[in-house]
């Protein structure tokens, strides 16, 4: 029983990080119908920037701020320069472009920082809490991870549901042409959408960095799991992304704990296939097609 609780706790922590990555992918998918394969590279780059700050003696919080601001800028720049030309083109164009961008980002990071994985400090101790004599797989840093992602999610929900800017963002995603007819500058909204998504991704990068280390290819698995979580959740639903992340995080944690950590990736695949067999559109997809 203790083991089950512990595996669940550790699953929730990593699940929140997958959820953040999934959320970054879903935000972009909803707005532009593009799967951003470069997300892993983008958050890798911003985490490297944060690492540089810490490496030069900067504080954890300054580094976190640098990562988030860099994410905001990187997301906007990528949308403006790389993605804008392939929007409203055949989907394969965007796939190739984002994959290409991933390769470029990884190569650039390798040139600047080298291929050696670097360690990244956690914000708080990773020593688990104790309940009497039993140690829990939940540390102050884990709580910080869960809390940080939760805060960002609530902030995003408030932004999308309660503000005029959010209304314009949603309108641009659902019906870009109609939005333009209503005076919404859809191009700006897409740029902003990418920037927001990249911020969420950057946060995930910094939060997961202590356990995966920072290197050009260290975040590949995070992207894969984030993508899996997004698909489990239906790819179209922010709530689904979060639930998908938590489901996947726990599933992988159980696989690691009860079977073997060698087959974690297989576990992710199994979780994905199981969900898609039961609900081919994902857990939270609105299966009804759009009618204008």
């Amino acid at each position: 029983m203790v083991e089950f609780v512990n595996l669940t706790l550790s699953g929730i922590t990593s699940g929140m990080v997958y959820a953040a990555v999934a959320l970054a992918l879903v935000l972009i998918w909803r707005a532009t119908r593009i799967v951003n394969f470069a997300q892993g590279g983008m958050l890798m780059l911003t985490t490297f920037l944060a690492w540089s700050v810490i490496d030069r003696g900067g504080s954890y919080w300054v580094a976190l701020a640098v990562a988030l601001i860099a994410g905001l800028a990187l997301g906007a720049i990528v949308e403006r320069i790389v993605i804008r030309p392939v929007e409203n083109k055949p989907p394969l164009n965007a796939v190739i472009v984002t994959l290409g961008l991933l390769v470029v980002l990884q190569a650039v990071a390798g040139m600047i920082w080298g291929g050696q994985p670097r360690s990244y400090p956690p914000a708080f101790t990773i020593q688990g809490f104790k309940l009497g004599e039993t140690g829990l797989l939940l540390s102050p840093f884990d709580l910080f991870v869960i809390g940080a992602v939760a805060v960002v999610m609530v902030a995003l929900i408030l932004l999308f549901r309660r503000t005029d800017l959010g209304l314009k963002l949603r309108a641009s995603a659902f019906a870009p042409e109609v939005a333009r007819l209503l005076g919404v500058r859809v191009g700006r909204m897409l740029t902003l959408g990418w920037a927001l998504a990249a911020v969420v991704g950057s946060l995930a990068g910094v939060l997961i960095a202590p356990s995966v280390f920072v290197g050009p290819n260290q975040f590949d698995a995070v992207l894969v799991f984030g993508f899996t979580a997004a698909v489990i959740g239906g790819l179209d639903s922010p709530v689904g992304a979060v639930v998908g992340g938590l489901v996947l995080g726990c599933a992988l944690s159980y696989v690691t704990g009860y079977i073997s950590s060698d087959i974690v990736t297989l576990g992710a695949l199994a979780a994905l296939i199981t969900v898609l067999m039961v609900r081919p559109n994902g857990l939270f997809a609105t299966s009804a097609g759009r009618r204008v």
């Binding site: 005029d164 209304l167 314009k168 949603r170 309108a171 659902f174 019906a175 042409e177 109609v178 939005a179 007819l181 209503l182 005076g183 919404v184 759009r290 009618r291 204008v292």
Partner: peptide
Amino acid sequence: VPESGGVIIELTVEENLRLGGLW
């Protein structure tokens, strides 16, 4: 007003109306 209205079906009635005058 485009053919068949172009109402954004995912948004509420109020949100649709609001969107019309936001600019």
